[in-house]
Amino acid sequence: MQVMDIQLNNIQIMDKLNGDIENLAMKLRGFIKDQVVGFKKKGVVIGVSGGVDSAVALTLCVQELGKEKVYGLLLPEIESAPSSKTLGAEICKSLGVAYEEVTISPILESLDIYEKKDRIIKRTCPEYDPGIHKTSLILPDFLNQGLLNVPYIQLIKDGESVGKYRLKASDYLELIGLQNVKQRSRMIVQYMYAEKMNYVVCGTTNKTEMVLGQFVKYGDGGVDIEPLADCYKTQVYALAKYLNVNEEIIRRPPSADTWSHYTSDEDFYWRMPIHVMDQLLYGQEHQMPVEVIEKNTGLSGETILKAQRHISRIKDTTEYVRATAPIYSLDL
């Protein structure tokens, strides 16, 4: 027991997350193969976003199944960063994977998504001019000031923030519903291809996102297999390095890329550096004492407790995102 306590007190979380990556990659490849075979499918369709998660998932699929059994889809829309498409195409080309670009803008336009979004931004930010402003959704600082999850629309002109306005609850809810149509449209397109080819749809959600509910239910969460969903984002970066993923993709700040101004996950979802968030999540998962998390993160005990309460609130709020539809069981 004493030996275990000493081990726990000296644990280096980052070393733990960055360790044994070769073995992890091997297990994930085995998982992909088993699931594809288990579902009696012939290969994998994967949405390639130009981000590190899809790059890692794509590489693992190609290594395990062969490039002929993997199909990449680039699914941009008007507000996507141009680099999403170029980096996505680059990784498909470098792995020799067949891919196709299907823009989802017409789906979004048919549902008036852009117009409805603009109307909400306009009534929230009176000075908003779509001709000159880019927009993003942001939350106030958490780690340094401990502020609540209150969303603001930020206006950006020539790369500089020129104003931010608090969103009303009803507008926030409508906006989230509109934004999520983007990921849900991508899911529709991916299944259109997967069913035609008799392939599975491979998800790219990692454990950090899964635990925090940072994905869209029946959107990017609507997939057949999730090879990375038990790997923290830190582990995905370690896998990316091990798999020699393009440095530009690794260095790119992670983002859902659904706002005209590229909004990083660090600014919106995590509100702290990813290595801190992952260490806090790991500490909570393994019920580590605060003093051990203090040693690892360099944060004060008070900040850690606040952050843990903040994470618990996020987990509670996103419970329904992770839940599958409950089924009423007949006692027959």
């Binding site: 209150v150 969303p151 608090r166 609850a169 009803s170």
Partner: peptide, 24 residues
Amino acid sequence: SIGLLELMDYICEKYAIEVPEDML
């Protein structure tokens, strides 16, 4: 968290106040 945003809207309207960011 959604209930919190709704409450915030309610008190801002009812008491004609705006809550500064540092008080959130």
